[in-house]
Design a protein around this nucleic acid. Structure first.
Lengths: 351, 351
DNA sequence: ACAAGTCTTGAGAACGCTCTCAACATACGC
DNA sequence: GCGTATGTTGAGAGCGTTCTCAAGACTTGT
């Protein structure tokens, strides 16, 4: 019969080391003003007994909760998940978050919240009350939802908005959408493409606009046309199919498409296939996101790598380091890179 | 200037409703023996003030922590994540878990733990002490790690082992690996295949053995040979390349391969390509896992769908419903299904 | 109508930790 | 050598909840 181990509390450590609770607490939290010799003795007791403070108790005593809460859009996440397309955002947030949180003794939790519901406040409020996180990370489209940012500001919970560049309350982090679109466009132009179309994301997302701007500016700099080369989708596969068809119908001389999401890029790939166009010989394709699925298509897609994990990591660092009242409304940009694969090549030579 | 909202505590509710804390607590937890009229009044106060109990405080007062902890293998998870292959296990666990936890007021947290390290106990012990979860879900290869199961048993924390059928302490849940392999083999045989090879997973995973058994039994039932048709990989891409090459070298008349992971199946697909074999015309392919990446390959792969989310969901249900001392060492099987896509077809007609 | 039960409510302790504040020890300046 | 700053330690309250237990209100059976 296995011995039942009782939970080790700070009291046990204090007794073992022959000091007060307070001293142990100071050692655990790296507090100042403890004689090295004593600190050592207490540390030895901690190690010996395998003491780890209870998060709940720490939270209770008015200090931090050591929890960072990441908010994702429930609707989109569940849709992607049910269709088994992969929930890359959640993935990247969770892992990027965990890897940055854990070394600091923090934990990352994921919460799915409906954006469009009229009871966002209640839903999020309940999570905040229950968990009392030390920081919250918002992802699009929540990042620019005033109801949410106000709620967080009211409750004085530090938060980070990913995919927003508004200097409002909370830290803003963008993933260099403008530069990324510019980069993708330039990459295609350097290969020799003249007609470079874009399938953009929906208006509600600020980053959709930034990407359009980047694409348009790159074209302007190169004296290339953009007329009729823009179609708007909703990031989903079906919208990509429609957009790609419209673009190819309208511009038979089109040789390159930038899609604002992997799913829309896969759709464009499918449209190319149905029209007998070979990628990349007849049509070059660049996608945004670089989720796992674009590595294994035929051909593998050149993609803008959305540095979600790195961005979340930065966000976590800021939230953890944040002083209680330091309303540092920073705007941080994490640059996205281009991963070249086999879907981009020089355009075909016209007869 | 936004009004700063103070946290609403059970005391505020009690005051507002003109009752004691205890009564509010009873209402919140659906306790018995509260006059309907009073219950209603308290509930009204709760709704009015938007009261939600603090998880930390609930935990402190000796009751549940409302946290379910899911343990994943750090090494494998991070490898898949860094290579951007996708961390499907984590994904599925998290979402399957969240969807089942949240309606019950529970939260799901993910912890990455190194299996091979000799300080598993310390690492996991720290997480358990800090979080004090009400239940733990173990995934392979942790599910059969005695150090871990013992630690959990000692601490009297209910846990579920996914991918283990040992009746030991804790609930065991399998995903019908035997039946799934049998199903895949039968599917191929029905298409007309006679030489059906298998690329298995490593020995350390029980499920590798179960899959081999299922495959072998199906072959035996159909009077088909299995000799020299088994190769062992480590679930990774490279091992799949090697195994597929060996199999095709050894058996030029091979027409079908079952791979014990999506990555190994993708590798087999690549080997087929490098040898000029068309899938599925020359070679049929069935993979295990059905992660997002096999939906978008050329051709999309027929796959055994690992019902990870459903299994985690079952596990969570059991852990939540579990009576404090009810050592129900159940063994539950969640069946896997076959998703037919374009990588399986009748074998080529031999000249 | 009375004893014995059941239902309903509340008071107070307890959970494990950190906070504030006070006490004592040591160092420093003149 | 004395007063004052600074360093070091501990005592006690408090965080928000649920637990145990007791008290009062209401049934029920005889």
């Amino acid at each position: 019969m296995a011995r039942v181990r009782k939970t080790v509390t700070i009291r046990d450590v204090a007794e073992d080391a022959g000091v007060s609770l307070q001293t142990v607490s100071r050692v655990v939290n790296g507090g100042p003003n403890v004689r090295p010799q004593l600190r050592e003795r207490v540390q030895a007791a901690i190690d010996k007994l395998g003491y780890v403070p209870s998060l709940a108790a720490q939270r209770m005593s008015g200090s931090r909760s050591y929890i960072i809460l990441a908010i994702n859009d429930r609707e989109r996440t569940l849709a992607d998940w049910r269709e088994r397309i992969g929930t890359d955002w959640v993935d990247q947030m969770l892992l990027g978050g965990i890897l940055t949180c854990n070394p600091h003794g923090y934990r990352m939790m994921v919460e799915l919240v409906d954006t469009h519901s009229d009871h966002v406040e209640r839903e999020l409020g309940a999570a905040l009350s229950a968990l009392q996180p030390d920081g919250v990370i918002l992802t699009p489209p929540h990042s620019e939802n005033c109801l949410i940012t106000q709620l967080l500001a009211e409750r004085r919970i530090p938060f980070a908005r990913i995919g927003s560049d508004a200097p409002g309350p909370g830290i803003a982090l963008t993933m260099g959408d403008h530069g990324a679109a510019h980069l993708a466009t330039t990459h295609l132009a350097q290969l020799g493409h003249r007609r470079i179309a874009m399938i953009a994301g929906p208006d509600q997302y600020s980053l959709s606009g930034w990407r359009i701007d980047g694409w348009r500016r790159a074209l302007a700099e190169l004296d290339l046309p953009d007329e009729g080369l823009l179609e708007v989708g909703d990031f989903g596969y079906d919208s990509g199919i429609r957009a790609a068809r419209v673009l190819l119908d309208r511009h038979p001389d089109l040789t390159a498409i930038i899609a604002s999401s992997d799913q829309m890029a896969l759709a464009a790939l499918e449209v190319a296939r149905e029209r007998g166009l070979t990628v990349p010989d007849d049509l070059s394709l660049v996608s945004f996101d670089n989720t796992p699925i674009v590595r294994f298509t035929q051909p593998p897609l050149t993609a803008i790598d959305q540095p979600i994990a790195a961005t979340v990591s930065r966000a976590v660092e800021h939230l953890i380091a944040r002083t209680p009242n330091g309303d540092d409304d920073a705007v941080i940009e994490v640059a996205a890179g281009l991963v070249e694969r086999a879907s981009t090549a020089p355009p075909p030579v016209r007869a």
